[in-house]
Computed example of a mutant assay.
Amino acid sequence: MMRAACLLLLLLLGLPAARAQEAAAVPPSLTAELSVRRVEVTTAFSGAEILVFGATERLIGPEGDEVLVLVIGPETSMMVRQKVNAMGFWINGPSARFNRVPSYWALASTRPLTAMLDRVERADLRLALDQLPLVQLGAQGPTFRNALANLQQEAGLWVDRDRPIEVSGGRLFHARLPLPATVAHGLYQVQVMLVRNRRVVARQELRLDVVRTGTSAFIADVAREQPVLYAIACIIMAGLAGWIGSVVFRRG
């Protein structure tokens, strides 16, 4: 009788610990989705918006979980030239070529990153423009990289300002990130991360396809596949435009 009571007591004492271990083994829950998976770029395209929404298992807030969204566009190469003054004329000087440049980069979070993640975690995830793994060829130095960042930010292609993620009902969230009219076509990687205790504990990756359609797609295909024909067509169109303009103004 005493032995059975001891066994029962041990089972009762061990039950909460077993439940805690079972709960710890369950991965954090994060569900996210895009409002659209495909953005069509036409000649009338003036920009769009990436809408990311989802839900978490626990409450979102300073004392609970946090969410951040990172969008990265297809990689490209860019050239940055420095202008130099030679006898009163501005001419092209040293230049640097950058490879593996994300054509689009934007970040949104429920709070500023410094309040959500520690420095090591931010560096590992490269959650800053100055931590992008760009390959710089030609002229060296931070001046060219800073110039590249300024150009991309002015064009709205690199969004490094803290954009807030809106929270509803404690567990539902959504983020809106702008796509400018000059956005590149291709596959965009959308990463939704769940942050707990200043570390990323869950991640979901989504894909957004930006495609050219209609006349813009035809022009882009001709320029890429038949550059000589494209150049001749541009010269002819420019000549026609000049001739029509001269006729109109002559009549006026």
Rank of each mutant, 00 (worst) to 15 (best):
F89C: 02
F89V: 10
F89M: 11
W90N: 11
I91G: 05
I91D: 04
I91Q: 13
I91S: 09
N92D: 15
N92F: 07
N92Q: 13
N92V: 04
N92G: 10
P94D: 13
S95P: 08
S95N: 11
A96E: 09
R97W: 11
F98T: 14
F98M: 11
F98C: 13
N99C: 04
N99R: 14
R100M: 07
V101P: 09
V101K: 10
P102D: 05
S103T: 09
S103R: 06
Y104W: 05
Y104C: 04
Y104P: 05
W105R: 06
W105Y: 14
A106T: 01
A106P: 05
L107C: 01
A108F: 02
S109M: 01
S109H: 00
R111N: 00
L113P: 06
L113Q: 03
T114Q: 05
M116D: 03
M116K: 03
M116F: 03
D118G: 15
E121A: 13
R122Y: 01
D124K: 11
D124E: 13
D124M: 04
L127Y: 06
L127N: 07
L127E: 07
L127F: 04
A128P: 09
A128Y: 07
A128H: 11
L129R: 08
L129Y: 07
L129T: 15
D130I: 12
D130W: 14
D130F: 13
Q131Y: 07
Q131H: 08
Q131N: 07
L132I: 08
P133M: 09
L134I: 11
L134R: 12
L134H: 13
L134P: 10
V135C: 03
V135W: 06
V135Q: 12
Q136A: 12
L137S: 14
L137R: 15
G138Y: 13
A139V: 04
A139W: 08
G141P: 06
G141T: 07
G141E: 04
G141Y: 03
P142H: 04
T143H: 02
T143L: 06
A147Y: 01
A147C: 04
L148V: 10
A149C: 07
N150F: 05
N150D: 13
L151N: 12
L151W: 11
L151D: 13
L151G: 08
Q152R: 15
Q152V: 03
Q153D: 02
G156A: 10
L157T: 08
W158H: 12
V159L: 14
V159T: 09
D160Q: 14
D162A: 09
P164L: 02
P164V: 02
P164G: 00
P164Y: 00
E166F: 01
V167S: 01
V167D: 02
V167T: 06
V167I: 11
